[in-house]
């Protein structure tokens, strides 16, 4: 299962502006890929390609040998930094919505025993993310961290093949962010998820990922900065047991990125 997800020669450009160029790689099932890089380096664009809200200009993305759908679908879950949960539904309803969509095609709403069943599943997920006591609360009554927990539960209820996280903890306080890291790692291990996470925090990328990608430009033409796009310049397998090694890598990348961005 080394080729769970395959990227073949992915490029993305908007008009003359090349954002991503010639990305080819494979991702194994159960990998936790963290995407780091300077702002505007194309890591979020890449996530949107995976999500299906944007299409690659050329190249192909396959999951289990099949081309991905050209619009967002339930095989790819997403948690954004903001607006991931629905303000008009309480926590339990937010999680149950995914089940209701699936089991009630006409109305997207379940009643009676079926509803009870959906609520049970939703409650189990709320418990998994530590929101059992807040099931009746609406998003505006939840803190930022709790909203992101809810967004995770909401996405995971669909059992997506891949989970995409777009700077999910960027707006949280450092202390809460640490709790969220533990939660994400726990969920990742328990559910054998394949995760892609965009972050601007290099340390967070090292701490969470099983594989770290650095996005940057291989070539740069100072007279035509849009001519070349980014690609994965570093692809580092991370090992939880080898923290010192990881730390050295971190320092190495920090200095490398500095060199790349100044030349």
């Amino acid at each position: 299962m080394n080729n769970f997800i395959e990227l073949t020669n992915i490029s993305k450009h908007y008009g003359d502006k090349v954002v991503l160029e010639r990305m080819t790689t494979q991702i194994a099932k159960g990998e936790f890929v963290t995407l780091v890089g300077a702002s505007g380096c194309g890591k979020s664009t890449f996530l949107r390609l995976l999500l299906g809200t944007e299409l690659a200009s050329s190249g192909a993305i396959t999951i289990e040998g099949e081309l991905i759908e050209k619009e967002p679908s339930s095989e790819r879950g997403i948690v954004f930094q903001k607006y991931s949960v629905f303000p008009h539904l309480n926590a339990r309803q937010n999680v149950a919505l995914g089940i209701e969509f699936e089991r009630s095609v006409g109305l997207g709403r379940l009643f009676g025993a079926k509803r009870k069943d959906a609520i049970d599943i939703a409650d189990a997920w709320l418990e998994a993310v530590g929101l059992s006591s807040s099931a009746e609360l609406y998003p505006h009554e939840l803190s930022g961290g709790m909203q992101q927990r809810l967004a995770l539960a909401q996405a995971l209820v669909k059992k997506p093949k891949i989970l995409l996280l777009d700077e999910p903890f960027g707006a949280l306080d450092p202390g809460i962010r640490k709790d969220m890291h533990e939660l994400v790692l726990k969920l990742w291990q328990e559910n054998q998820l394949t995760v892609f996470m965009v972050t601007h925090d290099l340390k967070e990328g090292f701490h969470l990922g099983s594989r770290l990608w650095v996005f940057d430009k291989r070539r740069n033409d100072p007279h035509a900065p849009n001519r070349f796009g980014s690609t994965i310049t570093f692809d580092i397998p991370l090992n939880a047991q080898n923290a010192t090694r990881n730390h050295q890598d971190l320092e190495a990348i920090k200095s490398e990125m500095h060199i790349v961005s100044t030349t």
Partner: peptide
């Protein structure tokens, strides 16, 4: 927010369901 509609799609909602459960109540 565009994010909400994308999220609803990743939860498996079709256009009609998303209008009924996500857009209309808001």
């Amino acid at each position: 927010p565009r994010e909400q509609l994308v999220k609803a799609q990743t939860l498996g909602g079709n256009s009609w369901q998303i209008i009924l459960r996500v857009i209309l109540p808001q």
